[in-house]
Design a protein around this nucleic acid. Structure first.
Lengths: 199, 199
DNA sequence: GTGCTTATTCATCACATGATGAAATGTATG
DNA sequence: CATACATTTCATCATGTGATGAATAAGCAC
């Protein structure tokens, strides 16, 4: 009962499409990107985009921007260890993930597109708050004892700092931020996060 | 030699177009917004958009998003006064401008669109760095004595914080941030900016 | 080779977009 | 009223878009 016929060998063209799509989405956002533009960038017939990604543009976006990162794992690594070091661990972990050239284009594209679209932005909001920053605040021995409103505020302030870091370093690419070594940023920003949690 | 003919009285329809355009650009970004969509939202014939804004979409965007804010004036107000209060003044001034319902939609639309577009983002970069944060750093008695590289880094870190504030409070609209009163944010974030300048 | 399956190409559809032209309508001046 | 100009409407163009169908080429099992 082995499968007949030609094998789905076209792994290279599919990869070309994915790569081109990542680039386009990252540079132009979701609305500004066209399937034909992607095909052009990948030097491929536009029909192939539909062939490999049934469901069209949205499916392609979802497939290409599927981040191979489990937030729970990230959080787990950050939360482990002494509470007085959470700040620097957050920043370091964050930067390590984002500096990984494997996932950076996808993340940048995701943020660029999410910030420009009403429905995507609500998903981003939930993600940032519930899956990331909220977890961090809830894991800190002092911060977790605060009122719910105060915890939300702390989470918001931390989110502010991390969003700004992402936007400044990876989206807007402010020179000084984009060039700065990870250690420098950890050293400068880590304590800020820590202060939001401690005091 | 008084002008003959009908007066350009249609001030209301023009206003409707402007308002609709602001809303659309703010919600969908530049690429995601169509002239016909704007006309539809304004309940107006699409041709009128071209009639009132010659030059099409880009001209309309430029006209509608022209921010009635002079950065120099803003900076001047912030820089005046004791250096140890710059941090809180920056944050307060910033929030006051952005909370103004007159300009908020335009600013949000501008940021949303800028973050999704390659060429707009470079303008945003120059603006943030040269016209805003750079000026602040250069005006601080301690920070201005630092090396150029260090000044850039400080500016970048401050930009991080302010960008994050904007994105978090006005674009993503994280609940705790969006609801927080100005005083609270000034109190929490002001010292962070100050620390970037002082130490 | 024969048959089956996939990859690739070509052609095309219906639709939305930005843009422009021309006519019709309204409103002021003289 | 007649003229002049702005507003508004209607019609249309070329182009780009996402999407689909059909045909051809290529690889693998039998």
């Amino acid at each position: 009962m082995s499968p007949r016929g030609r094998r789905p060998g076209g792994e290279d063209t599919r990869a070309a499409i994915v790569e081109a799509a990542r680039g386009e989405f990252a540079a132009r956002g979701y609305a500004g990107t066209s399937l034909r533009g992607i095909a052009r960038a990948a030097e491929v017939d536009p029909r192939l985009v539909h062939h490999y990604f049934e469901g069209g543009k949205s499916a392609l976006f979802a497939a290409v921007m599927a981040i191979p990162i489990d937030p729970a794992t990230i959080i787990a690594g950050v939360v482990l260890g002494p509470p007085e070091g959470i700040g620097v661990r957050v920043v370091r972990t964050f930067l390590t993930v984002w500096d990984n050239p494997e996932v950076q284009p996808a993340l940048v594209g995701l943020v660029r597109s999410a910030l420009a679209d009403e429905v995507l932005v609500s998903q981003l909001r939930d993600y940032v708050y519930r899956d990331l920053v909220g977890q961090i605040v809830a894991a800190h021995p002092h911060a977790r004892t605060l009122s719910a409103a105060e915890q939300s505020l702390r989470a918001g302030l931390i989110a502010t700092q991390m969003l700004g870091l992402v936007v400044g370093r990876y989206v807007v690419e402010l020179p000084a931020l984009a060039k700065a070594p990870v250690d420098t940023l950890v050293e400068r920003i880590g304590p800020i996060i820590q202060a939001h949690l401690d005091r």
